[in-house]
Amino acid sequence: MIHSVLSGDLPRSRILSIVLLGILVCLALAPFLFPGVRTVDTAARICVFIVLVASYDLLLGYGGIVSFAHTMFFGIGAYGVALASTHMGRGFDAIAVGAVSGAMIAALLALVIGLFSLRVRAIFFAMITLAVASAVAVLVSQLSGLTGGEDGLTFKTPRALGPAFKFGKETFDGTLFGVKLNGKLLAYYFVFVGTLVLFLFMLRVVNSPFGRVLQAIRENDFRAESIGYRVVKYRVAATCLSAAIAALAGSLYAVWLRYVGPDTTLSMEIMIDILLMVVIGGMGTMYGAILGATLFVLAQNYLQTLMGAASGLVEGIPILPELLSADRWLLWLGVLFILSVYFFPTGIVGRLRNQG
């Protein structure tokens, strides 16, 4: 059963299996295991970034294609839901229309970019995607009448996904294990289930004949071309699929935040974060997206707090309080990244799989 659900791609490491199972349980039960606004928000962000990072790994790790436009596709999906909800009202139909429209526009844009630039060297494609992503980010910031400009868009989600919605009063007195049964809980599970479905779909794709051809092209595109595979066709298809899934991740993020802005979906900082998560987790492994996104989002949210506590514990010791100051959390995040690349050159998943 598990072998079938995972498309035959098992973790192949006892330690990795335990870690992945632990993350799955923690995310599935996050509102009950870690009650609190900040912790549940962190879990939701981990879910969204698992999909986003996995979709980018489909492009980079499996296809060997370097793109700097992934946040653009992410933003298109998010703005699709925001605009649909703004103009159609707070309903699940608006979310569906926005998500599908965003995914289709992202795939179409990826198709145009791919057809024009994937026939030449990979670096040219990377530069084209960077230019287009930058242009779209500027355009979104300037079209304030449509996109809200730098301020972004705040919109209403269906009442069932809002904190004011209550359920289970008759049976559970409005709570379950001390957790309020409201729309915010439903919104979290909306994101979690969406993440699970999209991740399992991508796992199926990379373990299909299409995914194996992609890996063959990544290893040696000339040999793949010589035995009859149309390299450009497969690369363009992978780019479109990756863009569409990134847009759906953006849709989930928009539903959770009920807000969309250039800084939350289109910034180059997010693109760099995605690259770091892929490298940390391990390129060419869908499971790497889970580990990379989990570790990175946790570090982003809690490293500063931990460093502040550590700085207080070493007061009176020369230099250490300054080095461990909460203001230097980005420095230590960079150090952790360098150490992870040094000790795990094939990513955490690659290292754990080699150990068995």
Rank of each mutant, 00 (worst) to 15 (best):
8 G>H: 11
60 L>A: 14
80 G>R: 04
150 E>V: 13
246 A>W: 09
37 V>F: 13
43 A>L: 08
93 D>P: 07
151 D>K: 12
225 E>R: 12
129 T>N: 08
330 L>Y: 11
28 A>C: 12
251 S>G: 11
18 I>C: 05
263 D>H: 14
40 V>K: 02
140 V>W: 04
181 L>H: 03
315 E>W: 09
274 I>A: 14
113 I>W: 00
230 R>V: 06
157 T>H: 02
222 F>W: 05
258 R>G: 07
290 I>T: 00
42 T>N: 08
274 I>L: 15
118 L>V: 06
300 Q>F: 06
188 Y>G: 02
324 L>E: 07
107 A>G: 07
346 T>I: 01
61 G>Y: 04
336 L>Y: 12
247 A>R: 03
11 P>D: 10
162 G>F: 07
333 L>D: 05
247 A>K: 04
46 I>L: 04
117 S>I: 01
306 L>C: 09
26 C>F: 02
31 P>S: 10
233 K>G: 06
178 G>D: 10
195 T>I: 10
168 G>F: 04
342 Y>R: 15
344 F>N: 14
342 Y>W: 15
309 A>K: 14
36 G>R: 11
197 V>R: 04
98 G>Q: 10
96 A>D: 05
7 S>R: 02
35 P>G: 11
313 L>V: 02
39 T>K: 07
83 L>I: 13
226 S>D: 05
204 R>N: 13
79 Y>P: 05
82 A>Q: 02
183 G>A: 04
132 V>G: 05
297 V>I: 15
172 F>H: 11
126 A>C: 10
213 V>K: 10
223 R>K: 11
97 V>S: 06
345 P>Q: 02
115 L>Y: 13
295 L>E: 05
64 G>T: 14
278 V>R: 02
106 A>F: 00
97 V>L: 13
343 F>P: 04
295 L>W: 06
317 I>M: 13
148 G>W: 07
299 A>S: 13
271 M>L: 15
290 I>G: 00
188 Y>W: 12
276 L>E: 05
1 M>V: 08
120 V>G: 03
355 Q>W: 00
274 I>P: 02
232 V>W: 11
176 L>V: 12
252 L>M: 14
167 F>L: 11
301 N>T: 09
304 Q>W: 01
155 F>K: 00
37 V>K: 10
38 R>C: 02
102 G>K: 01
92 F>S: 05
83 L>V: 09
236 V>K: 03
132 V>T: 12
60 L>V: 13
29 L>F: 15
186 L>E: 02
157 T>K: 03
12 R>V: 05
97 V>A: 13
111 L>V: 03
259 Y>N: 08
301 N>D: 11
207 N>V: 02
266 L>D: 07
92 F>V: 08
158 P>T: 06
24 L>K: 01
